[in-house]
Amino acid sequence: KKVTINGVEIKFNNPEEAVKFALELAKRLNLRIEFHGDQIKIE
Score class of each variant (00 low, 15 high):
residue 42 I to T: 01
residue 14 N to Q: 04
residue 33 I to N: 00
residue 6 N to C: 15
residue 36 H to P: 03
residue 37 G to K: 07
residue 4 T to G: 02
residue 36 H to C: 14
residue 36 H to T: 11
residue 28 R to D: 05
residue 30 N to Y: 09
residue 33 I to T: 01
residue 27 K to Y: 05
residue 8 V to G: 04
residue 41 K to F: 14
residue 2 K to V: 15
residue 32 R to S: 09
residue 10 I to S: 02
residue 10 I to K: 02
residue 39 Q to K: 05
residue 4 T to S: 07
residue 18 A to Y: 10
residue 30 N to M: 08
residue 28 R to M: 10
residue 3 V to F: 04
residue 31 L to K: 00
residue 31 L to M: 12
residue 14 N to W: 11
residue 26 A to G: 03
residue 24 E to V: 05
residue 41 K to N: 09
residue 11 K to P: 05
residue 27 K to Q: 08
residue 27 K to V: 05
residue 26 A to M: 08
residue 35 F to M: 06
residue 5 I to F: 11
residue 21 F to M: 06
residue 16 E to C: 15
residue 28 R to G: 08
residue 20 K to C: 15
residue 21 F to H: 03
residue 20 K to M: 08
residue 37 G to T: 05
residue 43 E to C: 15
residue 5 I to Q: 02
residue 17 E to T: 05
residue 37 G to C: 10
residue 16 E to Y: 11
residue 18 A to M: 14
residue 23 L to K: 07
residue 33 I to V: 12
residue 6 N to T: 06
residue 8 V to F: 12
residue 37 G to L: 07
residue 11 K to E: 10
residue 27 K to D: 06
residue 29 L to Y: 09
residue 30 N to R: 09
residue 11 K to F: 15
residue 34 E to H: 08
residue 33 I to S: 00
residue 3 V to W: 04
residue 25 L to H: 01
residue 37 G to H: 07
residue 2 K to R: 12
residue 14 N to P: 10
residue 7 G to S: 03
residue 42 I to G: 01
residue 17 E to S: 07
residue 19 V to P: 01
residue 18 A to T: 03
residue 43 E to N: 11
residue 1 K to L: 15
residue 13 N to E: 11
residue 19 V to L: 14
residue 2 K to A: 09
residue 42 I to H: 03
residue 25 L to D: 00
residue 36 H to V: 12
residue 2 K to D: 04
residue 40 I to G: 01
residue 12 F to M: 03
residue 22 A to E: 01
residue 23 L to G: 02
residue 17 E to M: 10
residue 24 E to Y: 08
residue 38 D to T: 07
residue 39 Q to V: 14
residue 33 I to Q: 00
residue 17 E to H: 05
residue 33 I to L: 06
residue 21 F to P: 00
residue 31 L to S: 02
residue 15 P to T: 12
residue 41 K to L: 13
residue 42 I to Q: 00
residue 21 F to A: 09
residue 30 N to L: 09
residue 14 N to K: 07
residue 16 E to K: 07
residue 11 K to M: 14
residue 24 E to N: 05
residue 30 N to V: 06
residue 20 K to N: 06
residue 15 P to C: 15
residue 27 K to F: 07
residue 4 T to L: 13
residue 10 I to F: 11
residue 23 L to W: 08
residue 1 K to T: 14
residue 13 N to G: 09
residue 16 E to D: 09
residue 38 D to I: 11
residue 20 K to Q: 08
residue 41 K to T: 11
residue 10 I to L: 09
residue 16 E to R: 08
residue 14 N to D: 10
residue 13 N to W: 12
residue 6 N to S: 05
residue 14 N to C: 13
residue 26 A to P: 00
residue 40 I to S: 01
residue 2 K to N: 09
residue 38 D to C: 15
residue 8 V to K: 07
residue 43 E to W: 14
residue 19 V to F: 12
residue 37 G to A: 06
residue 38 D to M: 08
residue 4 T to N: 07
residue 18 A to E: 03
residue 11 K to D: 06
residue 43 E to I: 15
residue 39 Q to F: 14
